[in-house]
Design a protein around this nucleic acid. Structure first.
Length: 285
DNA sequence: AACACGTCCTGAGCGC
DNA sequence: TGCGCTCAGGACGTGT
């Protein structure tokens, strides 16, 4: 089983890694032209194409991340949102390199280089939105639930909102209406680190267990960011372009193998909320 | 053929 | 019966 190889594995740490990697390439640049090579990604691209005029030849002044969105801010109170979906990846290449198969959008810049959005499954998203205040976020991102690495995400927060809910804890932490950015791999890994059975009803877990869980989520995400994500391949000219977190995975993709912690139980796989879920029946109760 | 790292939508099922 | 909430499941292209 090779669930984490290949290119693109866009969970929060990968998106953060991409946003950081883009900065030295794109800050201060201006887009001279954009080629849109497909009619739709997750949504039709017609309105995106129309709004491109708002950002063409405007200086890129900031690149950030909110949830799994990359936010590119231009002079003139506009941002461009990029979401990689399930299979999206970005790379910087010289502008005259021919488009590869599955490249959906190409941005050309004033230094002769280009940004390529490669997305076989077309689950990605791009949009251009107005800003009310410079150096801020568009409204649709401003009002999102807390970042898992932010100050508003706490054990008490999760504990309170989980009361009375019977759904499995893994499903709750992956629900973007409660906390953003915790994807399928890191949800399994965080629950393993916290020693919590992913099938536990969320409303039954005590506050101390949520303290363990929040700490685990933060640690796992921070370590993955420090490792450069799990895989950001072919990101030319960027140091440490190969993410190395895959080798730190304890349960994800390890069904049938011996648990690396207890060295005794076999990692199990189940389906929660339609998503593959891996756990150690001995270490997670 | 089954399954894949994300989101969005639908509708079934529940308590009141 | 109806209302609102919760939650599971499917849909969305394509590749392996």
């Amino acid at each position: 089983m090779q669930p984490v190889d290949g290119e693109g594995m866009p969970e929060l740490p990968e998106v953060e890694t991409v946003a950081r990697a883009l900065r030295p390439h794109l800050l201060g640049r201006r887009m001279t032209r954009v080629d849109v090579l497909t009619v739709k990604l997750r949504k039709p691209l017609a309105s995106f194409k129309q709004k491109l005029a708002d950002v063409l030849d405007k200086e890129i002044i900031k690149i950030s991340r909110r949830a799994k969105y990359i936010v590119v801010e231009f002079a003139g109170m506009r941002v461009m949102l990029l979401h990689l979906g399930m299979s999206g990846s970005l790379k910087i290449v010289p502008g005259d390199v021919p488009a590869e198969n599955h490249e959906r959008i190409i941005w050309f810049f004033d230094d002769g280089r280009s940004l390529r959005f490669h997305d076989p499954r077309k689950f990605g998203l791009v949009d251009i939105l107005p800003l009310q205040i410079p150096d801020s976020l568009p409204e649709c991102l401003e009002n999102l639930p807390p970042e898992p690495l932010g100050e508003h995400f706490s054990a008490n927060y999760l504990y309170q909102l989980s009361r009375g809910r019977r759904r499995p804890i893994k499903s709750l932490i992956m629900d973007n209406s409660f906390v953003v950015g915790v994807g399928n791999i890191y949800a399994s890994e965080s629950l393993f680190r916290a020693g919590i059975d992913p099938l536990s009803p969320a409303g039954k877990l005590t506050l101390p267990r949520y303290q363990q869980l929040v700490q685990a989520i933060r640690q796992v995400l921070q370590e993955a960011i420090a490792a450069g994500g799990t895989t950001i391949s072919d990101f030319s000219g960027v140091d440490g372009s190969e993410g190395t977190f895959a080798r730190h995975l304890n349960v994800y993709g390890r069904a049938g193998k011996v648990c690396l912690t207890c060295n005794k139980a076999i990692i199990l796989k189940t389906i929660i909320g339609g998503r593959s879920t891996f756990y150690c029946p001995h270490c997670q109760k």
